[in-house]
Write a protein that binds this DNA or RNA. Structure first.
Lengths: 214, 214
DNA sequence: CGACGCTTTGAGGAGATTCAAGACACGTGG
DNA sequence: CCACGTGTCTTGAATCTCCTCAAAGCGTCG
C-alpha cells in the first residue's frame, strides 16, 4: 500500500529531507507502536512491513521496493502500526512530519494523498481478499507479476530481477509455506513461464502468468 | 469497514436526511460504478456489500447490520466500488452528499471520519489477512463473535440473534464453502458453544469461542 | 574449509473441496 | 389447510490441495 507519492520526490520538499540514512539487513527503520515521525522514501534496497498479531504470530503486510515510500501505517493515528525491517542494506530519505506540515502548500497535497490512499486501501483489501480464496499457484503467479510491474514502474527491468526476500517471507506474505513457494517456482520453470535460480528471476512468458490469474 | 459514524446520527444533520427508504430482499441500494450520492444509515434489516472481481467471481466484502452505516466505498473516488444489496427488507436513511458538504461545521467532522477510516481500513486489512491464514473453524468462530459484538454494540442482544445471510453468503465472505460452514456450525453445537437452528443463533459459551481464536 | 541458513525435494497426512443425495423450510396455489 | 415445488441446509464419501516432517543440496561468510 505504501506506493505513489511521486510528487513529493521533486520540488521544494526535496530541501527538507534527511538524505542518506542507512540500515543494514535485519535492522528496523521504525517499530510498531512508536510515534509517527514522517514518511520514508527508499532510495535503494528493500524493506518488509510486519504486523504483529496477538499470540506470537506475525504477518508480512507488504514489501517495499526501491523508489517506493512507506510510513502510511502511521499517518492517521500518528502511531506506526507495523515494524519496517530492511531485507538488505537500505539507503533511504526521511521526510519529517513536522516539516511537511509546516509547508501550507504541501498540506493540501498531503490531504489529497491521504484521500487517494483511503481509496487505494479499499482496492488493495478487496484484491487481497480475492487472492486469499485462490490456489497457491495463483498467489505465487500474482506475486511475481506484481513484483515485475512495481519494479518496471520505478525504472528497473520488469523481466529480470532479484527477489530480496526469502521463500519463507514470500510464503508468510502469501499465506502459504516456504516449501510450497519453492515447489511452485519450479513448476513455473518447468512450464517455461520463468527461470529462477535461488533469488534471481527471469520472466519468460508474462502473458501465461497473467492468463493463469484469469 | 462501514461502521462508526455515530456522531452523524444526532444533531442538525438529522434534519437533512431522507428517511424511510425501503428496499426489498435482493434489491440494490447502490451499484458498483455509480456516482457517490452520500452515506446510507441502516434503520432495520441488513445488507451485503459485494465487489465484482474480473471473471464472474464476486466477493462479499462485508455485511452491514441494523444501526450501521455504508457508502464508504464511494467516499474517496466519488464512485461506489461495491454493490450494496438488501439481505431482507431494509429501511434506511440517506444522507445526501451535497447537503453534508454544505454544512461547514460538519465538513471537518467528515474529514476526521475519513482519517479515522483510512486508519481503520489498515487494521481491518491486517485482521483479514491474519484470518485468511487460519482454519475454517477459526474463521467461523470469528464470524459469529463479530456478529454478536456488532449487534450488541447497537443495542441488540449479543447472545441470541438471527443471521440474515445464507450459509453460501457466509462462506463467500469467509473464503470457504457453504458445506464447510454448515459442518462447523454443527461442530460448535456438539461442543455446546452455541445452539443453531437454521438461521437462529444462540451463543452459549462465548469465552470458548474467543479462546479458540487465540 | 566448515558451519549455518536458505532452498529444494520427497512421503505421508490433515483439512477443505467437490459431488451427490436427502432433509427441511417457506411460499404458492389448489 | 394441505400438497407441492423450490431453494436452502445438512450429511456422507471420495478426492485434492496444501501442510508437516524429514533429509539432502547449495551458498555464503567467517
Amino acid at each position: 500500500m505504501p506506493r505513489g507519492l511521486e510528487r513529493f520526490e521533486v520540488g521544494e520538499l526535496a530541501l527538507l529531507v534527511n538524505r542518506n540514512n542507512i540500515r543494514q539487513k535485519g535492522e528496523a527503520i521504525y517499530h510498531a507502536g512508536s510515534p509517527y515521525r514522517g514518511m520514508i522514501a527508499i532510495r535503494s534496497g528493500s524493506v518488509k512491513l510486519i504486523s504483529f498479531g496477538q499470540h506470537d504470530n506475525e504477518l508480512i503486510v507488504d514489501f517495499i521496493l526501491p523508489g517506493e515510500v512507506l510510513g502510511f501505517d502511521g499517518l492517521s493515528t500518528q502511531i506506526y502500526h507495523c515494524t519496517a525491517v530492511a531485507l538488505e542494506t537500505v539507503n533511504y530519505c526521511h521526510l519529517p512530519a513536522h516539516k511537511i506540515n509546516a509547508l501550507d502548500s504541501q498540506k493540501s497535497h498531503f490531504n489529497q494523498l491521504l484521500l487517494e490512499r483511503s481509496c487505494g486501501q479499499f482496492d488493495a483489501q478487496v484484491e487481497r481478499m480475492m487472492l486469499s480464496r485462490r490456489s497457491a499457484e495463483e498467489r505465487v503467479a500474482s506475486f511475481v507479476v506484481q513484483m515485475s510491474d512495481r519494479l518496471q514502474l520505478r525504472g528497473y527491468s520488469g523481466a529480470e530481477f532479484r527477489l530480496s526476500m526469502s521463500r519463507e517471507e514470500i510464503g508468510n506474505h502469501l499465506g502459504i509455506t516456504h516449501e510450497t513457494v519453492s515447489r511452485i517456482f519450479h513448476l513455473f520453470q518447468d512450464k517455461q513461464w520463468l527461470e529462477i535460480k535461488s533469488k534471481q528471476v527471469k520472466i519468460i512468458d508474462k502473458k501465461k502468468l497473467l492468463n493463469f490469474l484469469h
